[in-house]
């Protein structure tokens, strides 16, 4: 795949950052979730730029397709009688301190990134095919794949048990 020019990448990065910042600032939780879906789509573009189309596919399927739906259903299930407007910042002082902490963290990270210079002359790696990924998953990474499968199964069964309603004992008996 031909890598896009830097201005295109910068525009995609700006769009991702704008949607993420808006999602974190808006009070309406559904609007925030939908804007985060856009952010995840833009991140998938960066995976395509990096030469990992399978990763972009997984990002779109899991984040844009699955996690966003779970979040929207959770919002709809917990929104109706909640009088406290949970998406509002807890207090002005807390919002200011959160902005200060995250701004300080970004300043440190940006300084470190801009100071760092990569070793020149490294050719970009070949784009891994699905067959290459499958061979790695079925070979050296087989244990990690099995452990991830067990974790996914256990957590999804646990999530179903946690979210299922608890039957109260009948007090008339």
């Amino acid at each position: 795949m031909i890598p896009p020019p830097l201005p295109v990448l910068a525009a995609i990065a700006a769009a991702a950052l704008l949607t993420a910042a808006l999602a974190m600032m808006l009070r309406n939780l559904i609007h925030s979730a939908l804007l985060l879906v856009l952010t995840w789509v833009f991140v998938a573009f960066f995976y395509l730029w990096a030469g990992a189309p399978f990763l972009a596919f997984a990002q779109v399927v899991v984040y844009v397709g699955a996690i966003s739906m779970v979040v929207l259903f959770a919002v709809l299930l917990t929104r109706r009688h909640d009088p406290a407007k949970p998406t509002r910042p807890a207090s002005l002082a807390r919002a200011c301190s959160a902005l200060a902490v995250s701004g300080g963290a970004f300043a440190v990270l940006a300084w470190a990134v801009l100071q760092w210079r990569p070793v020149p002359g490294n050719p970009p790696p070949a784009e891994p095919s699905v067959a290459t990924l499958g061979a790695a998953l079925a070979g050296p990474q087989l244990h990690a794949l099995l452990i991830t499968g067990v974790i996914l199964t256990a957590t999804l069964i646990g999530a179903a048990l946690i979210a299922s309603p608890v039957e109260k004992p009948d007090s008339s008996q």
Binding site: L17, A20, A21, A23, M24, P86, T87, R88, P89, A90, R94, A95, S97, A98, L99, V101, S102, G103, A105, F106, L109
Partner: peptide
């Protein structure tokens, strides 16, 4: 950092 700000402020 945007995610961190969201977690800390809400």
């Amino acid at each position: 950092c945007a995610g961190l700000a969201g977690v800390l402020s809400r």
